[in-house]
Write a protein that binds this DNA or RNA. Structure first.
Lengths: 204, 204
DNA sequence: ATTTTACATGAATAGTGATTCATATTTCAT
DNA sequence: ATGAAATATGAATCACTATTCATGTAAAAT
């Protein structure tokens, strides 16, 4: 069964969009399990049955939003970093775009965190896919000599962890955009590490 | 209302413990919202009403587990890092202890992630508390000259993000312990950063 | 031994909520 | 304009679930 039954008329498209927006709003406000299908249809000003014209069940609208989000985020990061010449700039712009996205769509962003408990497979796939793409970029930067020879998988998850928790604190907890100074500070950290007196890199 | 009504006889203690264990198991297996009180009491081999002798409602057992977990984790990290002489060793042992904990109590660990959607206040408090403690340690290490003068708050959330996402990937996704080589690689990263040719640390 | 307190039961309550479907209306192609 | 396709309705269904309570049993205190 498809995730969504796409409408064939402008009217249908408009209705689907209203349902999508209502779901996005309510999921981010109250979470998936505290939102009923009736909540969604009421917010969208349609009858309960209308929901099932477009979605086979409640979970599908969640998946639909997640896929949408994941695609939009990837695209935005891709566009924003396209013209960066150095890995350093790409990394900076990647962070910046991610934080902007989280601020602009904090509702959608929260959906990812909840996915672990709604659709665990999708949650895992989302992050592993994200990490896999990151690893490719990391390997490229290692070949040009821009990045140290750290394990790409480990480095990818470190960087993803950093962006997610900085986004969590500033945007989700404190409802602020992540200031540029914070991004610069993160860049200082991933450029030089945290220790004042770096030890030899290959000590066992 | 208290989170839990502590029993006054050995028999009661044993029953409470059975309920606690059943809840922990089911929450980590299926999540809070896909676990019913009846599921818990069935798993614990007691009648539904027995649950309410010990907990005022369903949410309380979740909170109870969360507090328990949070306390145990803090204690274990405290003990493990007590005798470390350098900040480097403390950081290493902190990571190691955290990963061991996640592996050993992966069920409890997942509860934290879900807390955002069950008890958002508690979720926020948990991480802000964790970060606040981290910040104190970071400032100390900066005073002894072991750490660079990065913003303690930002650094704390970076390090928390790293440990959480490495734990997520290895333990939750792949169900493996985090190998020591991975911890060493993380240490390389936070010691030297990711870039091969570090720029001056204070460039604007 | 008897009274009191603690613990346990499970059927009943009261409410929720996802989903269906028979029916009605609107839109569109011809 | 008209038949077909698309969209919309909302009451009814059915399953589920948190919680209560009247009753019963076990343990502890006196």
């Amino acid at each position: 069964m498809a995730l969504v039954n796409l409408p064939k008329t402008p009217k249908g498209l408009e209705t689907l969009e209203r349902i999508r927006k209502a779901a996005e709003m309510l999921f981010s406000e109250k979470g998936y399990y505290n939102t009923s299908v009736t909540d969604i249809t009421t917010e969208a000003s349609v009858a309960p049955g209308t929901f099932y014209i477009y979605f086979p069940d409640k979970k599908s609208v969640f998946r639909y939003l997640l896929e949408d989000m994941s695609h939009t985020l990837r695209t935005e990061i891709g566009v924003a970093t396209k013209d960066c010449t150095s890995r350093y700039d790409k990394e900076y712009m990647g962070f910046k775009t991610f934080f902007d996205f989280v601020k602009k769509h904090s509702g959608l962003y929260k959906i990812i965190w909840e996915a672990q408990f709604v659709d665990n497979e999708m949650f895992k796939e989302y992050y592993e896919n994200f990490a896999a793409r990151y690893m490719i970029k990391i390997r490229e930067a290692q070949q040009t000599g821009e990045f140290l020879d750290l394990d790409p998988k480990i480095l990818a998850y470190c960087l993803i962890g950093i962006s997610n928790f900085i986004g969590l604190k500033w945007v989700i907890f404190d409802n602020e955009p992540v200031p540029d100074e914070v991004i610069r500070e993160i860049m200082r950290f991933i450029r030089s590490g945290a220790f004042a007196d770096p030890q030899p890199a290959n000590r066992q």
